[in-house]
């Protein structure tokens, strides 16, 4: 049975509906990539699952989210709080700003196990240090007493990962965990995260805009575009045979060896803002293969091979 199953959730902020009937699921221990450009609704999906939408004035306006034995959309705040950090943890976008600048990083890890596992100060500290060592933080005992400004970006991100892992959650949502880091550190952090997730059988929802990261780390992929699911499939299948033109374009954005200068292709145009989503398929204005039907009719998610895709073309060819 799926650990997390998101069924047709829509998210509204005021009168806007930036997420439209998103659906996907994550099995225990599975690593699922959620990809899409900026503005496609990846972070909102994460916030919706974490129940953090009220912080930005949003709410889930339809659909349901099941996590383990809970229905999250109707969960009281008090019970949600007991879940957050304990059974589902969030690693947010920017490690530079996700640690409190006036408190020692170690204490910030300790806090989580004190809050959720009822550990005392000394035990919490020992647990944190052990966690830090597992994440290959050198001289963990010393780093435990450092302030965030004394650490490098990669080190801070490891601290944040330690905070996420320390209470042994079943699901970790990592929201672009490497975007703010140097390219050289990115691969390392992704590797550590996936290693830890595999070793502890923690499910990981890895939000990224980088198909390269997906190829390196994930079992399955959910491709989001402008607040809707475009395509879902296993990593192998999606790279071998992308059905949605948007997925194809994203894969085309991965730099490969032997590429001639200027050979790297972007995707023409921008993701439309939530105020001016086009009618029909939201990708059709940028799609090179759009047909008349794409501008009128919203393509529905349909099974296609092992995965699902929301594209009129895929339907025609199938």
């Amino acid at each position: 049975m799926a650990l997390l199953s998101v069924s047709d959730i829509s998210v509204s902020i005021g009168r806007l509906t930036p997420l439209d009937r998103i659906a996907f699921s994550i099995d225990p221990g599975e690593i699922v990539g959620v990809v899409g450009e900026s503005g496609s609704g990846k972070s909102l999906t994460a916030m919706a699952v974490m129940g953090l939408l009220p912080l930005i004035g949003g709410k889930i306006s339809g659909g349901s989210v099941h996590f383990a034995e809970f229905e999250l959309t109707t969960l009281t705040e008090a019970r949600y709080r007991a879940l957050r950090g304990r059974r589902v943890a969030l690693i947010s976008q920017n490690p530079m700003t996700s640690l409190d600048p006036v408190r020692r990083v170690g204490e910030q890890i300790d806090q989580v196990s004190m809050m959720h596992l009822g550990l005392g100060k000394v035990e919490a500290r020992a647990r944190s240090v052990e966690m830090m060592q597992q994440l290959r933080i050198p001289e963990a005992k010393i780093v435990h007493g450092n302030y965030p400004h004394q650490l490098s970006g990669g080190m801070k991100q490891r601290i944040v990962i330690a905070m996420a892992l320390v209470a042994n959650p079943e699901l970790i949502i990592a929201d672009e965990p490497t975007t703010a880091l140097d390219v050289t550190i990115q691969a390392q952090i992704i590797q550590i995260m996936t290693e830890m997730a595999r070793a502890r059988n923690v499910a990981l929802m890895l939000i990224t805009h980088d198909m390269g990261v997906v190829a390196q780390a994930c079992d399955r992929v959910v491709v989001l575009y402008a607040g809707r699911v475009a395509e879902m499939n296993t990593v192998d299948a999606i790279f071998a045979d992308p059905k949605h033109p948007y997925t194809k374009s994203l894969i085309g954005c991965i730099p490969v060896e032997g590429l001639p200068p200027g050979g790297l292709k972007g995707i023409a145009g921008n993701v439309p803002g939530v105020l001016n989503y086009p009618k029909g398929c939201r990708f059709h204005p940028r799609c090179t293969r759009a047909i008349a039907r794409c501008g009128d009719e919203v393509p529905l998610l349909r099974a296609s091979g092992a995965g699902t895709v929301a594209c009129h073309l895929a339907e025609v060819s199938a």
């Binding site: 974490m50 953090l52 912080l55 709080r81 007991a82 879940l83 957050r84 950090g85 304990r86 943890a89 969030l90 947010s92 976008q93 920017n94 700003t97 996700s98 640690l99 409190d100 600048p101 408190r103 806090q111 989580v112 809050m115 959720h116 944040v160 905070m163």
Partner: peptide, 22 residues
């Protein structure tokens, strides 16, 4: 609206903790 406050809430901290500790 700082990220670390959001991160603290995402770790399951209650209002008192967020207010007095952070």
């Amino acid at each position: 609206s700082e990220t670390y406050i959001e991160a603290t809430i995402a770790m399951g901290a209650g209002s008192g903790h967020v207010l007095f500790r952070h």
